[in-house]
Design a protein around this nucleic acid. Structure first.
Length: 157
DNA sequence: TCCATGCGCGGCC
DNA sequence: GGCCGCGCAGTGG
């Protein structure tokens, strides 16, 4: 399947998905486990925030998405410095191309209390930087903003 | 607790 | 360019 950027079918921001498998079946986010979908050549199509990377920040008008790697699965802390691997390169490519990235976030569904994946909509990678994270090792930080805010926020802000 | 599964990359025709 | 094998991952049964 060729890469697909932008919305998928008739799915809208706010729609929820029960599992990573469902995200894959619908084409929202194809990798079964990885958080970044895409390649270093075409850019990132979609990302998942699963509340497992300690340096992530999610707010109303901005997302700081930590790059892939360096994480100890047992402790959840960053233990080795991240490198510019293919998945991180994919997000850098997105910053270059300006292609929209689908953002999906794992949240607790009010009511059922179940963990679901919520489609947050299309974002753009405005910038990225490399620096020390909370645990003191190097991490990539990708700054994404909702597509509708990206246009009016280009060089200024 | 353990491990399957799908994908991108790189090596090799 | 196409095929194959490897390594790895923001899971999940």
């Amino acid at each position: 399947m060729p890469p697909h950027f932008g919305h998928i079918g008739s799915y809208l921001p706010g729609d929820t998905f029960a599992s990573r498998l469902e995200l894959r079946l619908t084409g929202m986010h194809r990798p079964v486990r990885a958080g970044i979908a895409g390649s270093q050549h075409t850019g990132a199509e979609s990302i998942v925030l699963s509340q497992v990377y300690e340096d992530d920040v999610f707010s109303e008008d901005e997302i700081i998405y930590t790059g892939q790697g360096g994480r100890d699965p047992k402790t959840g802390h960053q233990v080795t410095s991240q490198v510019a691997n293919d998945r991180n390169l994919a997000l850098m490519k997105s910053q270059e191309t300006g292609q929209p990235v689908r953002v999906i976030r794992k949240v607790t569904d009010e009511g059922s209390g179940a963990q679901v994946f919520r489609y947050e909509g299309l974002y753009r990678v405005l910038s990225y930087e490399y620096g020390l994270g909370k645990s003191g090792v190097g991490v990539w930080r990708f700054r994404l903003v909702p597509e509708r805010l990206a246009a009016g926020q280009l060089p200024t802000a």
